[in-house]
Amino acid sequence: MSYALIVAEVRRGIFEERNLDSIGICAQLGKETAMLLPEGQYSFNEKMVDSIVKVKAGEEVFLNPLNMAAIIGKIAETRGKPDFIVFTHSSSGTEAAAYTAGIFGFPVITDVSGYDKERGVFRKSYYSDKLFGEFKTIGESAAVLTVRSGSFKEFAAEKSAAPNEVSVEDVPVSDSRTFVEYVEEEKTDIDITKADFLLSVGRGVGNKDEIPAYEELAGIMKAVISGSRPVIDKMWLPKARQVGTSGKTVKPKVYLAMGISGAFQHIAGMKDADCIIAINKDAEAPIFQYAHFGVVADMHKVRDALKGILKG
């Protein structure tokens, strides 16, 4: 039977919304869908898939790439080889996708954000969305995909019948990689998700010594300062101030992005702000595609000019 296997991402019992993009791409591919889920009850519209395969294992076993490859092997034995194996483009989804591709010798394309039906090509980001590469698979074997959040969910639709449900038992569990525990981020006084006005700085800030001047500007404007990944990685701002998928998702009234080019993981964390203003010296920066207002300029000059106006 020709079908696509969707590996659902659940985290701490929550069915992640980006699974809808995995369902959506399967609709585009015109494939019947079987969705793999760990044991537990999840809140989502089950009618959007043709069948549900419940794996008798907790999420920490299920999301382990070594176990997942073994589970997929078991399913292929009974159902036949899938045409596609679809994961979310997330920390665990991408990890398991690459490993699965290696185990079975399948092609893998990650961070897929477009599919051209006529030409049978998948589109993926290069250079932080400055370019896209169009790929097709070679040969007839199943292809492993990870799907970018927000790219295909509009195509996820209800099927006419409720899904049939089967379960997989005797899950092979690896002892060479095992889950120990979840680790929460340290609690801090500042909560950037509650701010109405965020002044966010990115890689363009260039130098740690420039940060205090932005903190000063934020202070005068009564904005809360935040940052994108490169600034947090370099420890120029604390982790609690990070906007993006691995940090916080924010929805302020105004998001003033200075020197942020707009990598997808950042956009995902701020795209729902009421008003996005982007300042970047690169006119081609992807962030201008998502912003409401844009200024092509040196961020430091804008900072100093704003300070001049506010102090004057």
Binding site: G105, P107, L131, G133, Q289, A291, F293, V296
Partner: peptide
């Protein structure tokens, strides 16, 4: 190799920002 590059494309254009231009002040 299991996949091949067909071609490169520029990013799809979305709405885009209203650009503010002129003197910095």
């Amino acid at each position: 190799a299991h996949i091949e590059l067909v071609q490169w494309t520029y990013p799809p254009k979305k709405g885009g920002a209203q650009m503010l231009t002129g003197e910095l002040g």
